[in-house]
């Protein structure tokens, strides 16, 4: 698999390590009401879709950036890759 790194161009997926669903960017607020339940969901439960999946890849053997890669789990086709930092900041902006 080739991951289209937004800064470095197409890179072999072997250079990356995989963490999991990009929903992990949305860490719940530990101080909020019902935080325990929210954290159980956050840590242990996954959507695990067959099809388009947004996921976190770490460019460990490269520039050590985190990417949000959109990939099809049925075909392994990679549709999109963005810097996780940009995704997280956009999300923060949207929330604020």
């Amino acid at each position: 698999m080739l991951i289209p790194h937004p800064l470095l161009g197409p890179r072999d997926a072997q250079e990356f390590t995989y963490l999991g669903d990009a929903a992990l960017l949305a860490r719940p607020d530990g101080m909020a009401e019902g935080a325990l339940g929210a954290f159980i969901d956050y840590v242990y439960l996954r959507d695990n879709p067959a099809g388009v999946h947004r996921e976190l890849w770490f460019h460990e053997q490269g520039d050590r950036s985190w990417l949000v890669v959109t990939r099809n789990t049925v075909t392994h086709e990679i549709i999109d890759a963005q810097l996780a930092r940009d995704v997280a900041l956009a999300r923060k902006g949207a929330v604020a």
């Binding site: 997926a13 072997q14 695990n48 789990t73 049925v74 392994h76």
Partner: peptide
């Protein structure tokens, strides 16, 4: 292989 997959096939690495 280490990434989510439903493909019943893996990759070369």
């Amino acid at each position: 292989d280490g990434y989510n997959s439903y493909a019943q096939r893996g990759n070369m690495p």
